[in-house]
Design a protein around this nucleic acid. Structure first.
Lengths: 117, 117
DNA sequence: GTGCTTGTCAACTCAATGGTTGAAAGTGCT
DNA sequence: AGCACTTTCAACCATTGAGTTGACAAGCAC
């Protein structure tokens, strides 16, 4: 209940069925029944998965005629990417900086180094 | 236990505490005690979180002197990014193609061809 | 209207998760 | 050896999550 929005997004994608739904929706909108068809689970279960995706903001269901379409929202992907890139780049930048330091140490002096690798 | 590896990664990052750990580890390796310090939970709980991150491949703990360092692995981030980008781009490409079709309909008024690929 | 299909809600089961405490191994230092 | 610190294992509890079945509400066709 208290999960922040990023947690909801990651949690939503932690389930293989939901990732598969997202994958299929990337090919185009679908109704709940179309979505449910390949899975060996009840329609209600699929509907529940849909709710999870919806609450994570990964999917919207614009109102319309009876077979309502499920639509994939790509905006949330950006938020995930931002998070991932932020820390990946930070770690990699730090790593290359450390590399520089180690190299400086080797050329500078101190042949006492513990073989890190 | 039967979760595939992508599921484990997403599930690992679905927890705010674990995301915070990853964020902090992106600033440099840390011992478990250092990692645990800001949280109001038992050390054992932190170890559990660490295990989850470890099994997701997000973190390694190279052997060494007693307070073993926890190290962030950035490689897994690529796998996540691959997945995200794959379906984001697919959806956006489809969207722009649809856009093109719609525009063609408006300007042309008779779109007879659709099988683009 | 009657009926069929689609979509939704609710209650229930069962397994997994996040947290706890307590105890036991390892490891390092003197 | 002995002591302190780090790490892990096990049992337990509360909450969430994925799935089920059953029933109910809308929409569309006849």
């Amino acid at each position: 209940m208290s999960a922040d929005s990023l947690s909801r997004v990651f949690a939503a994608l932690a389930d293989p069925t939901r990732r598969d739904m997202v994958a299929r929706l990337s090919d185009g909108d679908a109704t709940v029944n179309q979505l449910a068809e390949p899975y060996r689970m009840s329609l209600q279960a699929v509907y529940k998965h849909l709710r999870v995706l919806e609450e994570a903001g990964l999917v919207t269901r614009p109102p319309g005629p009876q077979p309502r379409a499920v639509h994939l929202e790509t905006e949330v992907f950006d938020r995930m990417n931002d998070w991932i890139e932020r820390y990946r780049s930070r770690a990699e930048r730090r790593f290359s900086r450390l590399d520089t330091v180690l190299e400086a140490m080797r050329t500078d002096e101190k042949p006492e180094g513990e073989g890190q690798q």
